[in-house]
Structure formats: structure tokens, C-alpha cells
Design a protein around this nucleic acid. Structure first.
Lengths: 68, 68
DNA sequence: TTTATATGTAAGGTTAACCTTACACAGGGA
DNA sequence: TCCCTGTGTAAGGTTAACCTTACATATAAA
């Protein structure tokens, strides 16, 4: 699903691996979410949104996303 | 995880099965979420929050919940 | 009492969201 | 040129979020 993770991660000057450490997932998981390869679990969505100081709905663009 | 689904569902006068139909999951899935047997997918969380006209963060109480 | 509805739960199956390991490639610096 | 870092991706495994079917129980209505 569409999201702002890559954009925000770069604004924060972090690599995928570093962001993964912050939210306790692998760098591949971060990559997959940025590339829309799979949807995050609700906890990962929450952790990412919290890290970037926004709501889940702001970070993940449900309206503009296709549902698998 | 803790959530307000049961309370809101009853306010709306719906059965678990009826709510399941609204958000396209089985009544067992609704039951499991109400009883905190498993966490919703991000899309189900979104659909439920949208149905009850609130955000995911309002419907699901992350702060007060334990993480599996 | 019988019947219908709502809920709770269990079993067994499928799928997707993770994991680790591994490899390829691009760009930058020494 | 040679590394080193960052990214992209694939394979194979585990687990949890669903599914359907089924059964038990409680309550309310007939």
C-alpha cells in the first residue's frame, strides 16, 4: 500500500537498516513496505507512525491504495 | 489488543455477524478481535475504524495493550 | 417445552507478514 | 582499481490472521 515511509526515512537521514532497528524489524521488512510488496502488521504501522510523529492514517495512504 | 469494538458494535445495535458483513470478515474474526484473541490486519483495523467514524488509534488502544 | 438467535470456542486449512541468509548491483571514497 | 555502504530481491522457514465447519451454551420468544 502507498505510504510515506521512504520519504520520511530520507528526511530523517536514516538507512533502511537503521529504521528497521528503530522499530524492531529487518531491513527487508522496511524495504518491502517502502516498495509496497506487503502491508505492515498493525503494530509495525503503529511503531512507524509513532516514530515519525504522525498517525497511521497519515503515514499510510489507505484511500489512494489498492487492497490486495 | 484492547479495543472499543464490542462497545461500539452494541451502541450501533449490531450482532458480531452483522458487523462482520459490514467489513467483510467472518463473525469469528469479529469475536476474536473483541476478545483480544488476535490483532486485526491493518486493513481490517482501517475498515472498522472507518465504519465507526474514528481513527485506528482511537478504536484500538495501543498504549494500553500488550504486544504479543 | 421447543425453537431461534447470539455468542464463544475449537479444529483444520490457506495465505501473508515477518524472519535469516544470500547474492547482485550501483555509487562513492581511498 | 578496489572496497564499502545502501538498496533490491529471491529462497526457504515460521507464525498469526484470517477462512469454513461444527458444536455447546445462554437467552428470549413462541
Amino acid at each position: 500500500m502507498k505510504n510515506k515511509v521512504k520519504q520520511l526515512r530520507e528526511q530523517y537521514g536514516l538507512t533502511q537498516a537503521q529504521l528497521g532497528e528503530k522499530v524492531n524489524v529487518s531491513r527487508q521488512a522496511i524495504n518491502a513496505i517502502e516498495k509496497s510488496k506487503f502491508d505492515p502488521s498493525i503494530w509495525l504501522a503503529y511503531d512507524l507512525a509513532e516514530f515519525f510523529n504522525m498517525t497511521i492514517e497519515e503515514l499510510f495512504e489507505f484511500e489512494e491504495s489498492e487492497r490486495k
